[in-house]
Computed example of a mutant assay.
Amino acid sequence: MSKTVEFYFDLGSPATYLAYTQLPKICAETGSRLVYIPMLLGGVFKATGNASPATIPAKGRYMFEDLDRYARRYGVALKFNPHFPINTLTLMRAVTGMQLRHPERFQAFVDCLFNALWVEGRCLDEPATVAAVLTEHGFNPEDVLALTNDEAVKAALKDNTETAVKRGVFGAPSMFIGNQLFFGQDRLDFVAEALR
């Protein structure tokens, strides 16, 4: 069994945020490598005919209650974002661009965006808010915006999303160990078990 976890993620998913808080620890404990693969969840939904559980009111209410239970279990902050769902196209291009062009700052970049969305509940659909968040964390908003318009970055995000769908991804978070897919932050115990 491979000792690498490929983590397909989109910032706009609260379940993905929870997985993101736990995977580094699981990988450290099992001597495994964590590979972050940004994808566009909206593109995955469109390609697979899937939709967010939040589109079904009763399921959406339950999902957020359940995610809150997991956040307490994990000992991490989670706040329902009143602006959910978020259009993450520009954000995920920025994440992909940071990974490609500035890998040394990738982790801090993703940290600040996940925190803004799922701890502070900020509206990252608004460019001014995004700029404020980036500035607060030492990133130049104009440089980040330039990344989102880079054709190679756009192509990389599109390729990641298409590859995810070809591999059987239908939502986020999705994690692969070898060719085995684990979907959902509530399957992290199986991820840890497979790595051990």
Rank of each mutant, 00 (worst) to 15 (best):
Val153Gln: 11
Arg61Gly: 12
Arg93Trp: 00
Leu34Asp: 06
Gly42Asn: 04
Asn115Lys: 12
Asn81Pro: 11
Pro103Asp: 04
Gly49Glu: 01
Leu188Pro: 11
Glu162Cys: 00
Asp189Cys: 08
Phe80Lys: 15
Gly97Ala: 07
Ala108Ser: 13
Cys112Trp: 00
Leu147Asp: 06
Phe106Ile: 02
Ala155Tyr: 01
Glu6Asn: 12
Ala51Asn: 15
Leu124Asn: 02
Phe190Gln: 08
Leu113Pro: 14
Asn115Ala: 14
Glu104Arg: 11
His102Gln: 12
Leu113Phe: 06
Thr30Gly: 01
Gly138Gln: 13
Tyr62Arg: 07
Gly97Thr: 02
Ala108Lys: 13
Leu117Gly: 02
Phe190Asn: 01
His102Glu: 14
Ala58Gly: 00
Ala194Gly: 02
Asp159Ser: 13
Gly121Asn: 09
Gly60Phe: 13
Leu34Pro: 14
Lys158Pro: 08
Glu120Asn: 15
Pro82Glu: 04
Ala58His: 00
Phe45Lys: 01
Ala108Asp: 12
Ala156Val: 03
Arg72Gln: 15
Ile56Lys: 09
Met63Tyr: 07
Asp186Ser: 09
Thr48Cys: 12
Ala131Phe: 04
Ser2Pro: 09
Ala19Leu: 11
Gln185Phe: 10
Ala128Asp: 01
Pro53Ile: 07
Gly168Ala: 03
Leu188Glu: 08
Met92Thr: 02
Val5Asp: 10
Leu195Asp: 07
Ala58Pro: 01
Leu18Lys: 04
Arg69Trp: 02
Ala77Gly: 10
Asn115Cys: 08
Thr163Ile: 09
Trp118Asn: 03
Pro38Ala: 08
Lys158Gly: 12
Gly43Asp: 05
Gly60Asn: 11
Gly184Thr: 04
Thr161Trp: 00
Arg196Gly: 03
Thr16His: 06
Gln180Ile: 02
Leu147Glu: 08
Gly12Glu: 14
Phe9Gln: 11
Ala58Trp: 08
Ala152Gln: 04
Ile37Arg: 15
Met39Pro: 14
Ile177Val: 09
Val153Ala: 09
Val110Phe: 08
Ala146Ile: 05
His102Pro: 00
Phe170Trp: 11
Arg167Met: 09
Pro53Phe: 05
Pro38Thr: 06
Ala131Tyr: 05
Arg73Trp: 12
Val44Ala: 09
Lys166Gly: 09
Gln185His: 13
Arg72Ser: 13
Gly168Tyr: 03
Ala128Lys: 06
Ile26Arg: 00
Ala77His: 06
Gly184Val: 04
Lys25Ile: 10
Gly31Trp: 12
Ala131Pro: 08
Lys79Phe: 10
Ile26Val: 11
Ala156Tyr: 00
Asp150Arg: 00
Pro85Thr: 15
Asn81His: 05
Cys27Gly: 07
Asp189Arg: 02
Glu104Ile: 05
Gly138Leu: 13
Met175Phe: 01
Leu67Ser: 14
Gly138Ile: 02
Glu120Gln: 15
Gly171Leu: 05
